[in-house]
């Protein structure tokens, strides 16, 4: 269905009907946390969210193509399959992000155990 071009700026808030509950991580922060515990808490939450997205395949790609970012030039494999599809690019970005968040959590708390489905990437050295 086509929507008329909206004059009004789109709010960053999602609809009120969308409420997210993450098991074990209440979205009302426990009051007795100090600054470092808070930071770690938010990190855990971000890691959990990203993991959930990767597991469920709900990558947060906007349904409306107009809301998506421009695509890079396509890259094809030898048998003509497109390699850098939006899904592949988004998944890669989420995995990289999760990796960075996990590294950050480990720095803050050496006892931190990453999610079981996390594998540290063999990062190629770029640039």
């Amino acid at each position: 269905p086509e929507e008329p071009a909206r004059k009004k700026r789109k709010s960053r808030w999602a609809s009120e009907t969308v409420r997210t509950a993450i098991p074990g991580l209440p979205t009302v922060m426990p009051a007795n946390m100090n600054e470092q515990q808070q930071q770690l808490y938010i990190l855990h939450l971000k890691i959990e969210e990203t993991s959930r997205q990767l597991r469920s395949g709900d990558l947060g790609i906007p349904l409306n193509p107009a809301d998506r970012s421009p695509s890079p030039e396509p890259i094809y494999s030898h048998d003509g399959k497109r390699l850098n599809t939006r899904e592949v690019r988004t998944r890669k970005r989420l995995e990289d992000r999760r990796h960075d968040l996990i590294q950050e959590a480990i720095t803050l708390n050496p006892e931190y155990r990453p999610p079981t489905d996390y594998k540290a990437p063999n990062r190629k050295i770029e640039d």
């Binding site: 960053r12 997210t20 969210e49």
Partner: peptide, 26 residues
């Protein structure tokens, strides 16, 4: 606002709320 906004999505992120006098210390 505290209870209404917790768990809402903002820019695709889950909003965490914290309501305490401790906030002032931050």
């Amino acid at each position: 606002a505290h209870s209404a906004l917790a768990g809402r999505k903002f820019a695709n992120r889950v909003v965490v709320t914290w309501c305490a006098m401790l906030c002032l210390a931050c």
